[in-house]
Design a protein around this nucleic acid. Structure first.
Lengths: 114, 114
DNA sequence: GCAACGCATTGACGATTGTCAATGGGTATG
DNA sequence: CATACCCATTGACAATCGTCAATGCGTTGC
């Protein structure tokens, strides 16, 4: 990612379409992950799960954020749909943790955010 | 980001709200960056700019994607609003490049995606 | 059995988003 | 001046999103 200094010389009517190296499925998957993390609440939830020593439940986040329980549940479902999060039920609780089989793209993004 | 093995013991009515270490402004800024990258078209545009040896103009992307020029222009404006992209006008062209003063968060995220 | 708890789902609402057609402004060429 | 090119802005539209109230379901404790 080095600095680009000069502007290219261009001729009228001639464009330089960049070649897209990424496969469409890869683009879709990555943008799904990004979309899941692009909401402030979900971003904080994901970071909390990333940094947590133990799995967390919905009620933990309901206590943290000023949001209703259905809303928190809805956000967590989005993280799960994106493959970022995994759930284990025990008793009346649903424990959430970061997906252990997180794809490399997701892992790198999660490590990049702060 | 090590594996979490065991589930915590919980008591009814007692939750364990995670402590949010991130400042609210930081959360807002990062989620703005993520939101800007969360669209498939903008994701590909950002990656193209990241990997390009020279700045690119709007018409380059209009040729690449099957989208109207206003739409491409609109997407580029979103990347610019998020501080990811910088524009230099010369003649009839507007040349876009990755922002040289990209905040660390943005740079790490951009390097993480693929 | 019954009440309380934790959670997911549904339905509804305003807000935001992605897209295009239409338009206008600036710049080069003839 | 007139035309062609590149680009940004506006207005409009359907689609999606974030949120909550209401509801239902499974589990635990009395």
């Amino acid at each position: 990612m080095e600095r680009i200094a000069v502007l290219p010389e261009r001729e009228r009517g001639v464009c330089c379409p960049p070649t897209i190296r990424l496969r469409p499925e890869k683009v879709a998957g990555t943008s799904e992950i990004l979309k899941a993390l692009a909401d402030p609440t979900r971003l904080q939830m994901a970071i909390a799960l990333r940094d947590a020593k133990e799995p967390l439940c919905i009620c933990d986040f309901t206590a943290t954020f000023d949001l209703s329980q259905p809303t928190v549940s809805h956000h967590m479902a989005k993280l799960k749909e994106a493959g970022l999060v995994e759930v284990t039920k025990r008793g009346i609780w649903s424990f959430y943790r970061l997906a252990p089989d997180l794809p490399a793209a997701g892992r790198r993004i999660l490590e990049a955010i702060s």
